[in-house]
Design a protein around this nucleic acid. Structure first.
Lengths: 335, 335
DNA sequence: CTTAGCACTCAGCTTAGAAGAGTGCTACGT
DNA sequence: ACGTAGCACTCTTCTAAGCTGAGTGCTAAG
């Protein structure tokens, strides 16, 4: 039923369509691919592939386009893996050489890389901050009136510059913080509620300042550090699928809805590289898109998740090669 | 030459055009504004205003549109100042109440406010980091293998989590950093070159670690903290001037060119609120836009600069009211 | 100085027709 | 049974033409 030649035709259609963004007709295919058969034969094969649900027809006289199932088959069985060109490879390797081991920084670097190289929109989310476990809180004096509060957890650092309250005893605060750090070390951020802070402080005979509580609570608010990062939207919007004004508006609207993009990115959980094509994506407005995701985990906890988003007509081979390489490098840097 | 009635007509045209985005014809104007004269009279006035360079005609039979000079006259002399509605006002005041005195944070909050309220794209740049003067460098230990380096300057804080080099003596590093902070305190970041670091360290009999130098040098690189922040692009792109596909593409391309947006924002230096209209903007691709800028300074140094960008057909009164209010609140919070 | 009236202009919409690309089917050859 | 040529048919897209409506500029009269 799905003989060799049908697969060859399907593959040719997918690749030509990915390259041209135009529906592929039987004649053009016969001419450009030297398949050794006439366009009529290809028409028959196309009709069969369409019956199998692997191809779609935009309208009666418009050539064929891969269906979601067609893309899926292509990705799973037909695609020839590409190797990244030397430049990309170097760039990825170089990215993670430095001694910096801060997730925030690694995510930012990766985003830059993803959006610089190609036709994708890049998405990323960091770890859920409230799951981080506390390492240390410290106050760094700046000048007479101000100091920086620094909170160090196992995978991120946060700071805030605050005005020093009038009634503050700087030495006292530092002692409190040191003892506090000892006591709270290893607790996750969401375990450190106001009441926990106060209890511990009472035991320590220290005092918890409002600013400190406020600061710690800010570290809990989502939408700061776990917020969705988006870059390369213009790569995305300049795809030919968004040539018409209303399409491009719809796409812009989609990008604005961070909730939808978040669902799209988180739709494929787990570590490693995955592909989701069209209707496989949960959010309905993303049904015309495909996404290649990279999940970075440590000890079963998701640390970061990246997505390369494009119209379904994306260059899967390239996106996958890029994603694999980034996954490998990043996973190694982190674990 | 520019009698009262002409000004009334000009003002009506600007306001109607700002509201409708459609060229204004004499008949419609006569009907909707009850000016007490016929459309023919208004046509005459319009012709005069056009001769004065205050109005433009998109084409022969299409009503009038304000020229850059027309907008300018409107902003300088005709516009009625608006007061913000209570909600916006509350929001602005509330924004700066907290004790947090970190520029980074204030800028982020302001950006959120600007892009949430309305039809503008918001731009911001922070201070030039290399001009900041050092307050303190500190190392905050995290766990066995890692520590956070924290650099506190007079208007920003930076941190990096790094792997602790094998040969590091933690106590030694902390002492070095404390002494280093003492010695370097008050120097601007760009005065602290590698050679300065090394000289001082030699005097202190300490050792400067590569990571520390790398970290300090990263604090110098522009494009991190002084980079241009952009938000509310979709406010901007959903303006009717970008209805056609090619217009919207051009706008997207403009947004991508951070250099152009940077020139646009920095084109109007100085403290306080300013308006630049159309051709008054230096970068040619921004000649169809207007920008209201907010400059925040301290001691003659630019700390932050915001911009509200929209097509020339922007609601100047509203943008200015918003900008003034933000300027007042932010300036007070900072100085 | 103002206004009514009128001829003229021009973008934008609608319609019709032609061109082009592609399909599906049939009939024929191997 | 499979491959191929040929042909009628479908459907989008492009172009041209004509029409409509909003608006202008000018003239002549109040």
């Amino acid at each position: 039923m799905l003989d060799e030649r049908k697969l060859v035709v399907l593959r040719a259609i997918v690749e030509d369509y990915v390259a041209s963004a135009e529906p592929i007709g039987s004649r053009t295919l016969a001419r450009t691919h030297k398949l050794g058969v006439s366009s009529a034969t290809i028409r028959n094969e196309m009709a069969d592939l369409e019956a199998l649900g692997l191809l779609d027809k935009p309208h009666t006289s418009a050539g064929r386009v891969p269906s979601d199932a067609g893309y899926r088959l292509y990705v799973d069985r037909l695609m020839e893996p590409v190797t990244l060109d030397a430049r990309d490879f170097q760039q990825i390797q170089g990215l993670y050489l430095s001694r910096v081991r801060e997730l925030e920084y690694l995510i930012a670097q990766t985003m830059r890389l993803l959006s610089s190289s190609g036709d994708f929109m890049a998405l990323a989310v960091g770890p859920e901050m409230r799951r981080a476990s506390l390492m240390r809180i410290e106050a760094v004096p700046a000048d007479e009136g101000r100091m920086a509060l620094v909170l160090v957890t196992d995978y991120y650092v946060q700071h805030r510059m605050i005005e020093i309250p009038e009634d503050l005893d700087p030495e006292g605060l530092r002692t409190t913080l040191r003892d506090l750090s000892e006591r709270l070390r290893g607790l996750t951020v969401d375990q450190i509620t106001r009441s926990v802070l106060e209890t511990v402080a009472r035991e320590l005979n220290g005092r918890i300042y409002d600013e400190l509580v406020e600061f710690m609570q800010e570290c809990l608010t989502p939408g700061e550090g776990d917020r969705l990062r988006i870059s390369g939207t213009s790569n995305f919007l300049s795809q030919p699928e968004f040539r018409e004004a209303d399409r491009i508006r719809a796409a812009i609207q989609l990008i604005e809805q961070e909730a939808v993009l978040g669902d799209l990115l988180r739709g494929a959980p787990g570590a490693g590289v995955q592909v989701r094509i069209g209707h496989e994506n949960p959010p309905p407005p993303a049904r015309d898109l495909s996404i290649v995701t990279i999940g970075i985990e440590r000890a079963g906890q998701s640390l970061a998740r990246f997505g390369l988003v494009a119209p379904k007509r994306m260059d899967y081979a390239r996106a996958l090669a890029l994603a694999q390489q980034i996954f490998r490098a990043l996973d190694e840097a982190i674990n």
